[in-house]
């Protein structure tokens, strides 16, 4: 049976601690390079702080949105270095085939793709801590979140050893999902109607970012706060939303949450 792996991220639970970002980088052998900035660093999982301009604060963890339809990056790659795996719904990046033209990065509306501006490097000896399941990417290629595909492989191997066709859901959990201290990131098969993600994706609190573009992302977000749900789209009618980090608010007010 085909799976469609997706996530449902509860934005009312995400406190923006950043554990997912570090766990992701560790799992995927992402280097920390001294010159990298927020515009050149590689953060396959990236948490965006947002605010409603008053006292409302939210953090939006953004992995690759795993677009299902008209997948922008898959469509534009000239040499099939990106493909949508129909068996899992995962948009796979193959850095070995990438020539680094970065067309996919301009195509992605979510900025979920990252270019290796430098050769990966670790302080002497630290390469011993690299995860053996994931190959290191060289400079000049694009990479992104592939839902910890190595973990899926490991789960499939485990199932095959046990003579089973299907993997155990508990055996395949991406690093960010595993690391979340509040359980805000839920992961599973959207095709399985009984799964937690599938259920969450059907609630009225669920939304997807820029869904009107028609790319059918498989990362859902949920929030009980209307202003957070409104972040899904740009607003043709109102002022453009402005990004803001949490800041000190003046005055002696009590906020009713």
């Amino acid at each position: 049976m085909k799976a469609r792996y997706g996530m449902a991220i509860d934005l009312d639970r995400c406190t923006g601690c950043g554990a997912c970002m570090v766990a992701c980088a560790s799992e995927n052998n992402v280097p920390r390079l001294p010159k990298a900035t927020e515009r050149t660093g590689i953060t396959p999982m990236l948490v965006h702080p947002v605010s409603d301009g008053k006292t409302g604060v939210a953090f939006i963890p953004m992995p690759c949105m795993q677009c299902e339809d008209e997948t922008p990056c898959v469509k534009v790659c000239p040499q099939q270095a990106v493909e949508l795996d129909r068996a899992t719904g995962i948009v796979m990046q193959m850095p070995q085939r990438c020539l680094g033209c970065r067309y996919c990065m301009t195509a992605c509306p979510y900025h979920s793709r990252y270019f290796n501006w430098w050769d990966p490097a670790w302080p002497a000896g630290m390469e011993r801590t690299l995860n053996p399941g994931v190959a290191v990417r060289m400079r000049g290629v694009v990479e992104k979140c592939n839902m910890c595909h190595a973990r899926l492989h490991a789960a499939e191997d485990k199932a095959a050893e046990a003579g089973k066709r299907q993997i155990e859901a508990a055996d395949y959990v991406p690093a960010c999902v595993e690391s979340c201290p509040t359980g805000a990131i839920r992961f599973g098969d959207l095709n399985d109607g009984a799964s937690e993600v599938a259920k969450a994706s059907r609630t009225p609190e669920a939304f997807r970012l820029l869904a009107r573009l028609g790319t059918e992302p498989k990362i859902y977000y949920t929030s009980k706060r209307a202003w957070v749900r409104a972040l899904a789209e740009r607003h043709p009618a109102g002022e453009p939303s402005q990004p803001a980090a949490p800041v000190a608010a003046g005055g002696g007010e009590v906020k009713h949450g």
Binding site: P78, Q79, R97, L99, C101, G140, V141, V142
Partner: peptide
């Protein structure tokens, strides 16, 4: 391009849907 040595991959594994191809 980041990896000019791989530029010929476009001819080898062309994605016919891509304008860049």
């Amino acid at each position: 391009v980041g990896q000019p040595l791989r530029a010929w991959f476009t001819f080898w594994h062309p994605n016919v849907h891509s304008m860049l191809t």
